[in-house]
Amino acid sequence: MSSGVEQSSQARLRIGDWTVSPVSGQMTRGEETVRLEARTLRLLLCLAEKAGHVVSIDDLLGEVWQGVIVTPDSVYQAVTSLRRLLGDDPRQPVYIATVPRRGYRMVAAVSSPDQPGRPTVTQAAANEEFAPPAAPVQRPASGRLYTRLLAIVALLVLACLGFYLLTRPSLPAPSTTASVAPNPRSIAVLPFLDLTDAMNEEPFADGMTEELIDKLSQSRGLQVIPPTSSFYFKGKQVTIAQVAKALHVAYVLDGSVRKSGNTLRVAARLVRAGDGFVVWSQTYDRSWDDKLMIQDDIAGEVAKALNGSIR
Rank of each mutant, 00 (worst) to 15 (best):
L212G: 11
Q218P: 02
P184S: 05
L165P: 06
Q7K: 13
S112M: 03
I96W: 04
K304C: 08
C46A: 14
A135I: 06
T196D: 06
N183K: 04
R84Y: 14
R118I: 03
P203K: 11
V224Q: 05
V70M: 07
R258Q: 09
N127H: 12
Q218N: 09
Y95N: 03
L41F: 00
V157C: 04
T177E: 05
A108M: 13
L45V: 00
L43S: 04
V153P: 02
Q77E: 05
T177C: 07
A154Q: 11
L171P: 04
V180S: 10
W280C: 13
A151K: 10
A250H: 04
Q10E: 09
D194A: 12
F231H: 15
P72H: 12
F130P: 05
G4Q: 10
P93I: 03
S24T: 09
R265L: 10
P116H: 09
L264K: 03
G62R: 13
A305M: 03
L86V: 13
G274F: 05
D89P: 13
D214F: 01
T239G: 12
P140S: 10
I213G: 13
W18E: 01
L45H: 00
R220H: 11
A244L: 06
R91W: 09
P191L: 05
P191G: 10
I15M: 08
S230V: 08
R83K: 07
V238H: 09
V271Y: 00
D73M: 06
P227R: 14
G235T: 08
L86Q: 14
A78G: 02
H53V: 01
